[in-house]
């Protein structure tokens, strides 16, 4: 159904692609780790694909099953391919996992505010990712590397549970080989084959070669990891308004109308998912907000 005419997609809200999903076709599926996979999708109706900012997310609809918010993990300079990486955690991601090349999914988006890659120009960049938190940061990394000269040192600190859980392994190896990018990968639990770092990702912060007073930090991972990463960065002397985190809440409508993703006064779907830590500091450590 690659040629589905646009006129059939009447939009309830009059906002293109915001209320009614648009058709995308799965072109490739990669099994990244035992429980994560990457879908490469192509728009069924728009040759130009889907323009997005690093850090934005889409709602993915599987026919008859439902919808799930997923961050975009492809290259913002190649919008003709829409890339999503996810883990099987519920019925919709389970259904996505069962789809085959050539199957169709519905896409609404892109939604939200992404990483401050433009504002961060001229600074060192420290990217801290935990687990599948690397997926929403990958577009930012693509952008930073494509505009390498505009930034100071770029550091990627990535933590995974075990060596087998490392996401985008080949790409990380390629990046490690670059002279203009510092990549440190660590695992919580090593095995016989692992010769790399062992320890949580926050242990990489103190020795990381960036200037804390002229750096911008981009963090994504489980909330606990982000809290500890913020502490480690502050200990190193970073200002909290230079630290950005990507929040996860129950995004449903994507446009700040349904109320589900509220985090204090913020709607994560439209005010986030990326926030300056400064704006969240009174809420970030509070329970059940």
């Amino acid at each position: 159904m690659a040629g589905l005419p646009e006129k059939d997609l009447v939009d309830t809200g009059g906002i293109s692609g915001m209320i009614a999903p648009r058709p995308f076709v799965i072109r490739r599926i990669e099994r990244d780790t035992a429980d994560t996979f990457t879908l490469r999708l192509k728009s069924g109706s728009d040759r130009n694909g889907l323009h997005f900012e690093p850090g934005q997310f889409n709602m993915l609809y599987v026919f008859g099953v439902g919808e799930v918010p997923l961050s975009i993990s492809g290259d913002p300079a190649k919008p003709q391919f829409l890339v999503h990486t996810t883990r099987v955690v519920g019925p919709v991601t389970g259904a996505l996992h069962r789809l085959k090349t050539g199957d169709m999914v519905g896409i609404r988006g892109p939604f939200g505010k992404g990483w401050p890659v433009d504002e961060a120009e001229g600074n060192d960049i420290v990217v801290i990712a935990g687990g599948i938190g690397l997926a929403p940061l990958r577009p930012a990394l693509y952008h930073l590397l494509a505009h390498r000269k505009k930034y100071g040192r770029i550091v990627l600190l990535y933590g995974a549970r075990t060596p087998a859980d490392i996401l985008y392994r080949r790409e990380l190896e390629k990046w490690r080989a670059r002279f203009d990018l510092e990549v440190e990968v660590t695992v919580d639990r090593g095995d016989e084959s692992w010769w790399g770092n062992v320890g949580v990702v926050t242990t990489l912060v103190p020795r990381s070669p960036f200037d804390p007073l002229n750096a911008v930090a981009l963090i994504c991972g489980p909330e606990v990891m982000m809290r500890f990463a913020v502490m480690a960065l502050r200990k190193k002397g970073m200002n909290i308004d230079d630290i950005y985190v990507s929040m996860e809440r129950n995004m449903k409508c994507g446009v700040g109308l349904c109320g589900h993703c509220q985090f204090g006064p913020k709607f994560v779907c439209k005010n986030g998912p990326v926030f300056s830590y400064e704006t969240l500091k009174n809420l970030f450590n509070k329970r059940e907000i």
């Binding site: 589905l4 309830t12 009614a20 999903p21």
Partner: peptide
């Protein structure tokens, strides 16, 4: 649903 694709109407 139309085979592997689907069509939306509002």
């Amino acid at each position: 649903r139309n085979k592997r694709a689907f069509e939306l109407k509002q």
